[in-house]
């Protein structure tokens, strides 16, 4: 059992896809959350093993979610089409691995497993 993963992604198609893909691999998915507010709400109820964050959610930055995860020592990866997410979302996402967008299944799973280890 790999653990629990919070998915934060505003595009429904990608969110659904990530959810099904990770559930097939035995992850329990928290969310997915489409907004910063709903992601923070989910984090209040439960602390995930790892998290997967898109950088921009409906025009807003994911930064508060990243800060909350940092404060709780939850490792996270980014799923961003931006080359340099730190430039967009700031220090809170520095050094977080970016699996990119689109990402390959293998890269995504390997990154999450490494974060959870």
């Amino acid at each position: 059992m790999p653990g629990t993963v919070l998915i934060v992604e505003d595009e429904f198609m990608i969110a659904l896809d990530l959810q099904l893909l990770l559930e097939r691999q035995g992850w329990r998915v928290i969310g997915p959350a489409a907004t910063v507010a709903s992601a923070l709400q989910l984090l209040e109820d439960e602390t995930p093993t790892v998290a997967l964050l898109d950088v921009k959610l409906g025009g807003k930055l994911v930064t508060p979610v990243a800060e909350s995860l940092r404060a709780q020592d939850v490792p996270f990866a980014l799923t961003s089409a931006y080359e340099d997410p730190e430039q967009i979302a700031g220090k809170a996402v520095a050094r977080a691995p970016n699996v990119g967008k689109p990402s390959t299944e293998r890269r995504l799973l390997a990154t999450l497993e490494k974060l959870a280890a």
Partner: peptide, 21 residues
Amino acid sequence: FDELRHRMKNLLSVTQSIARQ
């Protein structure tokens, strides 16, 4: 250019999700 590249990659990502689902 960055914005265009970002949109393009998002679109590819949505397309990938549709293909997979």
